[in-house]
Amino acid sequence: MAKTQLNVRVDEDTARAARERATARGMSVNRYIEELVRQDAGEAGRAFVDAAADFMRQYESVFAEEFTEARGTGAGEGRG
């Protein structure tokens, strides 16, 4: 994967913490930041999927009823 340079400014305490944590994990600060962003993006994606699944569970009967009536079929009919 191609790399793109990203310059950010943080206060000295944040920079120190990033260096210390990266060193403790045996990785560069660059790699540490990359992993934090990937983890954050993954959590947002999982949160969205979990929320969507919860929504579908809550309203499953409403959707089933609506789409069954719209197709003019009984439950389980029209599938193949």
Score class of each variant (00 low, 15 high):
G42V: 02
F55C: 02
T68W: 01
G76P: 00
M27Q: 13
T68D: 05
A2M: 06
S28K: 07
N30W: 01
A64P: 00
A15G: 04
G26V: 02
T14P: 01
R9Q: 09
N7H: 12
T4S: 14
V37D: 10
A22F: 00
A47F: 04
R79I: 10
S61M: 11
M27S: 05
E35R: 15
A2L: 08
V62F: 06
V49Y: 09
A52E: 13
A22V: 03
A24V: 03
A51H: 10
T23H: 12
D13I: 03
E69V: 05
A53I: 07
F63Q: 03
L6M: 15
A22Q: 00
L36P: 04
Q58L: 09
V37T: 12
T73H: 07
I33P: 03
G72N: 04
R9I: 05
V49M: 09
A22M: 00
E34N: 14
A44P: 01
E69K: 12
E66C: 01
Y32I: 00
T68C: 06
R21C: 06
A2Y: 05
S61K: 10
K3R: 14
E12N: 08
R71I: 01
M27D: 02
R38W: 11
D50R: 13
R25Q: 14
Q58H: 09
L36M: 15
A18T: 11
V49H: 12
E12T: 08
Q39C: 07
M1P: 14
R19F: 04
E35C: 13
G45W: 06
D40T: 08
R25L: 15
N30Q: 14
A53N: 08
V49I: 11
